[in-house]
Amino acid sequence: MSVLTERAQNLIEEFELFDDWMDRYQHVIDLGKELAPIDESFRSSDYRIHGCQSQVWLQPGQEGANVQFRADSDAQITKGLIAILLRVVNDAPAHEVAGADLAFLDQLELKEHLSPTRKNGLDAMIKQIRLYAGAMAARSSQSS
């Protein structure tokens, strides 16, 4: 089992603990609050993810061969969703993240309860994470 799949599985189990939808939302909101802040210089249109009704900024980063993203949003539920994504991809090898389908979000049963605009935003975020990871993986393989 890849590290990504394992982490996704843990998240799915974690979310299964909540029967009530409001509690599930509360958990998403709380996860967002734990997100590490981004550097202010990344709070710009260059790093903004388009397609979200709320504003989302993604700060790419790398530690060795592993990705290390940070992100922020002005909406708390969005921020929580980012936190969930980053919990899965951060500290994972860039080449794995670049190829990941990140479909685990469907299993959290979160995606189907999001508005279409939010879903588009989330898809845009996933796409951007994979693009960055792809570029990082390419750089790592060139330098090694």
Partner: peptide, 21 residues
Amino acid sequence: ATHPYDVGSVLDRLGIAVRTG
């Protein structure tokens, strides 16, 4: 200080349809 989007999402769970944005 809450974002309209967050408020609208919670209200939706309660069956209340509002516009946000």
